[in-house]
């Protein structure tokens, strides 16, 4: 799933380039920072929930 890989693991960050349209990469008005924060929150939530429940929340 997309949440498994971290945005920080990407060598290239083409959305940072001049002329790039960030909405080509990020949905819902996310940007790099808010997306990272969202992923962190998801991860923490997942740990707290012992891995249950999240799949049903995010796959729809």
């Amino acid at each position: 799933a997309v949440h498994e890989f971290s945005i920080d693991s990407l060598e290239e960050k083409p959305w940072r380039k001049p002329g790039a349209d960030i909405t080509d990469y990020f949905n819902y008005g996310f940007n790099e920072e808010t997306w990272r924060a969202y992923c962190e929150r998801q991860k923490r939530f997942r740990v707290a929930e012992s891995g249950v429940g999240l799949a049903s929340l995010t796959q729809n």
Binding site: A1, V2, I7, A20, Y25, N27, Y28
Partner: peptide, 22 residues
């Protein structure tokens, strides 16, 4: 694009699936 649906797709404009704007 399922990645874009999740919130982020690293392929950006080169993705073979659609990234629809809302």
């Amino acid at each position: 694009c399922m990645n874009y649906l999740a919130g982020f797709c690293p392929e950006g404009p080169n993705c073979k699936h659609m990234h629809p704007r809302f």
